Amino acid sequence: MNLRLAPPAFDPPSLAAGAVESEIAFRLGMPQLSLAGLSETWLLKELGHRHWMLLAQMAGRDRPDFRDTDGAPVYAAFCALSVAHASFAALGENDAVVIRSHLRRISRTQCASRHVVLRDGRAMGEVELVSAFVRRGAGGGNHSVARVALDGFPAPPAGVSLGLPQRAAQLRAGRLSRHFGFDLDGPGGEARFEIDPCPAQDFNGAGFLYFSSFIAFIDRAEWHFDGRSASRATTRAREVFFHGNVDPGERLAVRWRAARRGEGVLTHHCRLERVSDGVCLADAFTERSV
């Protein structure tokens, strides 16, 4: 496979005031692997858990049980993710890997974590996750979540957060006109692939369609539209911006808006929509080795 070379070594970030970090080791086996190397779905689930545990650590708690002033549960909903410098196909059975993570607060309601996967001290991929604290509205469903600020965390830094948080804010505000080489203002393709999420497989314990399921649906759509020519496609880079969620029993559609092929590379822009009302749930930009 034509893989993007990983950085020569892990460059540990300098921790900002109030930031926290952790490190965990794994011996890769079948739960952590896919047909094409390290399982991105497994990795994202693990990193979502790391992010959640680091939030508790940042707040000085032994477990991440967050509640608002009325006692209602508060969750960290992911609003953006980035995968970069990924060489997941180079990882295989019995490889020993380390995941180094650090989390920082970026606003009153948002936190961002960065995770680096290392083998023998060499970075094999980086993942960034941006989350916002949310609670359900009076109706209790997944259509009516609202951001909330929590006490007990270090003060957010002054100024604008750059990088992934900034791109997410620009896209939500309609100020991002191009991304991954795609024109975001154009009509885009109309091909769509409908999915009926399974409550037993695709929703998390908080009752939300889990962020890793969005990625799995994007890969299923890629397989539907373009995958027969590349059964071992693997992610080189990916950015996903989350806008909404669904309740159990609701269908969603992955719209195949645009795609291009280069030598050994497939890049595409997908949009996930709620079938019942057409609301946009996520925009996903993916670069894959094929």
Rank of each mutant, 00 (worst) to 15 (best):
A72Y: 01
C79A: 11
V74A: 02
F88W: 15
D120W: 06
D120C: 01
F133L: 11
V127C: 01
G159K: 10
A149C: 03
F78Y: 13
Y75K: 09
P64Y: 04
R147W: 13
R104D: 05
V83D: 02
S113C: 02
V116R: 00
A149I: 02
E126Q: 04
M58W: 06
A76K: 07
D70F: 06
H51R: 09
R108H: 12
A112E: 15
A80K: 00
G125L: 01
L103E: 03
R119F: 04
H85R: 15
R119A: 08
G125S: 07
R122N: 00
D70T: 14
T109V: 13
R136F: 06
R136K: 14
V98M: 07
T109W: 10
G71Y: 14
L118V: 01
M58A: 14
H51V: 13
S131E: 12
D70Y: 06
P64M: 13
D70V: 10
G137V: 00
A80Y: 02
M124G: 04
S131F: 03
A146K: 14
G125M: 11
H102L: 10
G60L: 08
V98N: 02
A59C: 15
D62Y: 13
R63S: 14
A76H: 09
V83T: 07
V98L: 12
S101A: 07
R135M: 11
A112C: 09
V98F: 08
V98R: 10
H143M: 12
G159P: 04
V160M: 15
G137R: 08
P154V: 02
A89K: 07
R135Y: 07
A84M: 09
Q110A: 14
P154H: 04
